[in-house]
């Protein structure tokens, strides 16, 4: 089966949504799928975090996106990820370096994080991917 690896380096709604969509879609297609949350992306893995903002360049579209989600036209990014996790094909990794400098502890992370890893470990897992994306 093909494999996709996505590095997520932003906690903004407009970055998390496509990252989760691609990762979960791959998982429900039976692909191996993995996401590595680093830098500001790691903030999205903290318990209780709910993305409400889009990137500053696209502020004028923020209300449109929120409306699409609250109306049910678009699922929330967490609902998307949860469905990907249910397949057993989606792995979620948190960046250990980012956790250090942001002072985030393992117990601060949401339960669906599979592992806390460094760059070398993630590269080793991702090296045989067919698709690699960096979303920030």
């Amino acid at each position: 089966m093909p494999k996709i690896s996505i590095i997520v380096a932003s906690e903004k709604l407009d970055k998390l949504f496509p990252a989760a969509t691609l990762a979960t879609t791959a998982a429900v297609m039976g692909w191996e799928s993995e996401m590595f949350f680093t830098f500001w992306g790691l903030l999205a893995l903290k318990k209780g975090y709910e993305p409400k903002e889009v990137s500053s360049d696209y502020k004028s579209y923020e209300d449109d996106l929120r409306r699409a989600i609250s109306s049910g036209a678009m699922p929330s990014w967490l609902e998307i990820l949860e469905q990907g996790k249910k397949t057993g094909k989606l792995k979620i990794y948190a960046c250990s370096t980012t956790m250090n400098f942001l002072g985030v502890k393992t117990e601060d992370l949401v339960a669906y994080v599979d592992e806390v890893v460094g760059a070398a470990s993630f590269l080793s897992k991702a090296k045989d991917s067919d698709i690699n994306l960096f979303i920030s």
């Binding site: 969509t21 979960t24 879609t25 429900v28 699409a68 049910g72 036209a73 678009m74 699922p75 609902e79 998307i80 469905q83």
Partner: peptide, 10 residues
Amino acid sequence: RNKSCPGPLL
């Protein structure tokens, strides 16, 4: 209906 990608597939 009225759901956009990836809603229908999910």
